[in-house]
Design a protein around this nucleic acid. Structure first.
Length: 294
DNA sequence: CGCCATTAGTGGG
DNA sequence: CCCACTAATGGCG
């Protein structure tokens, strides 16, 4: 189908250069979110996109692991509420102490993290060398940033907006030295977006650069298992600041390592998506995608 | 009831 | 001052 298969091959997810599948999915999600009152059918949507219903069906299933109908089900408010329901995590979880995300679920992205202290990054990343590159992902083009201590940033850009994403990220550590190095970041991209690469044997090293409060919030996000979600207020309670849910939201919004630190798994108490730094549509896509793999 | 819109309280940066 | 929150309140089918 696509002759230009790149380094990330043989996966069920959309890893085609340019993230073509995601582009289709993004449009569908946008349409559904706008017209959710009058439930456009598969035919209508396909028509709008200039695709055949079967073609759309195929693209969808390849991307999400779900039929469009099931996907629609997976991104409703109702489903989001289900993600929030039940299941309290033990407050002191062993895997958390080890810095692993999630209690041993087979297909989860295992992460070891290290916090960079305020003193170290306060200078705006002075002395820090950050290598970066863009790569296709199931959620559009992703910008991956690494230091010699591990992964430091993951961002997303729609077609043609790469520069914006880069500026957004580099503004966070204005004094760091930025070096383009696609070769180095490609390995990370592959690890991050292909579930087949997720394994506890070979944890992904992440360096979290933020304030104490932010780090606490991000660590809490890392404990939310794949395919689940928590409300901002749950997270606030868990870090011992039950009234700070709004501040939690702000901290989550500053998470520099999107997707890896699963900020898309934070929802409003009602199940509403409420916001996402790289666009609520992308958040909806991530939750739907996880629903298809969970 | 249920679904908005508005408001006040809130804590971190 | 800004903000990816939330519970309470009041209006309107």
């Amino acid at each position: 189908m696509n002759a230009l298969f790149d380094t990330i091959s043989e996966s069920a997810v959309d890893v085609t250069p340019g993230g073509h599948d995601y582009e289709t999915v993004r449009k569908v999600i946008t349409m559904l979110s706008e017209d959710y009152r009058d439930q456009p059918g598969l035919e209508t949507i396909a028509g709008e996109l200039g695709m055949s219903p079967t073609g759309l069906q195929k693209t969808f299933t390849r991307w999400a692991g779900l039929s469009p109908k099931a996907f629609l089900q997976a991104i409703t408010l109702d489903h989001a509420k289900t993600l929030l329901g039940r299941e309290q995590l033990p407050l002191l979880d062993t895997s958390y102490e080890l810095g692993l995300s999630g209690p041993g679920r087979l297909h989860d992205l295992f992460v070891t993290h290290e916090a960079m202290s305020p003193g170290e990054w306060k200078s705006g990343g002075e002395g820090l060398v950050i290598r970066h590159g863009f790569h296709p992902s199931p959620f559009g083009r992703s910008l991956v940033m690494i230091t010699d201590r591990g992964l430091a940033g993951v961002a997303f850009a729609d077609e043609g907006k790469e520069q914006t994403a880069f500026e957004d990220m580099s503004a966070r550590w204005p004094k760091a030295r930025y070096v383009e190095d696609q070769q180095a970041t490609a390995a990370y991209a592959k690890r991050i977006f292909d579930p087949a690469e997720w394994s506890s044997d070979r944890p992904l090293k992440v360096v979290l650069i933020g304030t104490d409060f932010q780090i606490k919030v991000w660590e809490t996000l890392l404990k939310i298992p794949f395919g689940k979600a928590k409300s901002y207020s749950d997270i606030a309670a868990e870090i011992g600041c039950p009234k700070a849910s709004r501040a939690v939201g702000a901290a989550i919004g500053r998470n520099p390592v999107s997707f890896v630190v699963p900020c898309h798994r934070a929802l409003g108490k009602s199940g509403a998506l409420t916001g996402y730094h790289w666009g609520v549509t992308r958040k909806r896509a991530m939750l739907g995608w996880e629903a298809g793999k969970a």
